[in-house]
Computed example of a mutant assay.
Amino acid sequence: MSAPKLRLGTTAWFEMVGALMVDAATRSGLSPKLNLSFVELYTDGVELENGLVQGICFDIIAGQPSFRVGVRPGERGDVTVEITTAAAQRLNSLRSIDPLYADAINQVLRTGEMRVNGDPSRLGGWLQELHDSIVEHTL
């Protein structure tokens, strides 16, 4: 049976992404000394409740992962990804083994549709491994 599909950018979709991130980070055996924040912000995203905009804030505090759906405008983390909705849709429709995936990443970085500040590798390899699971759950 295939995974349920959620529309990219919805609250339910961000909750699914956050839950997958927490699960993967927990299974990776995080150091209890690790403190790190990851923010992904949709630059053209819609406003959510409480003044937040589309995105996700993922924190690891003392080795314990957690997330919040929605990002404060201008919020930054140790790793911050700013991306357009169209670029997110394009990337989340391609599996990591698809040769078009690497090309799409290079294109959205080159055009500025996605900007990455900080070093995502600080989160560990589990973050990269999540991509295909997210694709499986994305409409």
Score class of each variant (00 low, 15 high):
residue 29 G to V: 10
residue 35 N to H: 11
residue 100 L to C: 06
residue 89 Q to F: 05
residue 65 P to K: 12
residue 43 T to M: 09
residue 48 L to D: 10
residue 67 F to R: 03
residue 85 T to P: 00
residue 26 T to F: 09
residue 65 P to V: 09
residue 101 Y to N: 05
residue 66 S to K: 15
residue 77 G to R: 09
residue 130 L to C: 13
residue 76 R to F: 05
residue 60 I to M: 05
residue 89 Q to K: 14
residue 22 V to I: 08
residue 139 L to G: 11
residue 6 L to Y: 15
residue 73 P to W: 13
residue 69 V to F: 08
residue 41 L to G: 00
residue 113 E to C: 01
residue 79 V to M: 11
residue 14 F to D: 00
residue 114 M to G: 01
residue 110 R to I: 00
residue 96 S to K: 10
residue 69 V to H: 06
residue 19 A to F: 01
residue 121 S to I: 06
residue 122 R to F: 00
residue 49 E to Y: 06
residue 91 L to A: 08
residue 120 P to Y: 07
residue 112 G to R: 08
residue 51 G to F: 04
residue 93 S to Y: 03
residue 26 T to A: 12
residue 40 E to L: 14
residue 104 A to N: 07
residue 136 E to L: 15
residue 47 E to Q: 12
residue 108 V to H: 07
residue 109 L to M: 14
residue 7 R to T: 15
residue 24 A to D: 05
residue 52 L to Q: 14
residue 31 S to Y: 01
residue 31 S to E: 02
residue 70 G to C: 12
residue 48 L to I: 06
residue 123 L to C: 06
residue 84 T to M: 08
residue 17 V to T: 03
residue 72 R to D: 08
residue 40 E to R: 13
residue 17 V to L: 07
residue 8 L to G: 04
residue 65 P to Q: 09
residue 50 N to I: 01
residue 52 L to S: 10
residue 51 G to I: 06
residue 125 G to Q: 12
residue 83 I to E: 00
residue 53 V to A: 00
residue 62 A to M: 07
residue 93 S to R: 11
residue 26 T to Y: 05
residue 102 A to H: 07
residue 119 D to C: 03
residue 21 M to W: 09
residue 15 E to Y: 00
residue 72 R to T: 11
residue 27 R to A: 15
residue 88 A to C: 07
residue 98 D to I: 00
residue 11 T to N: 08
residue 23 D to L: 10
residue 27 R to C: 03
residue 22 V to S: 01
residue 49 E to H: 13
residue 67 F to L: 02
residue 131 H to M: 03
residue 124 G to R: 05
residue 44 D to Y: 08
residue 73 P to H: 11
residue 84 T to R: 08
residue 121 S to A: 14
residue 56 I to W: 02
residue 42 Y to D: 01
residue 84 T to G: 12
residue 123 L to Q: 06
residue 43 T to A: 12
residue 100 L to K: 13
residue 55 G to W: 03
residue 34 L to V: 05
residue 39 V to F: 12
residue 61 I to T: 14
residue 116 V to H: 04
residue 39 V to T: 10
residue 131 H to Y: 04
residue 7 R to A: 11
residue 53 V to W: 02
residue 130 L to K: 09
residue 48 L to E: 12
residue 66 S to N: 15
residue 99 P to N: 06
residue 107 Q to Y: 04
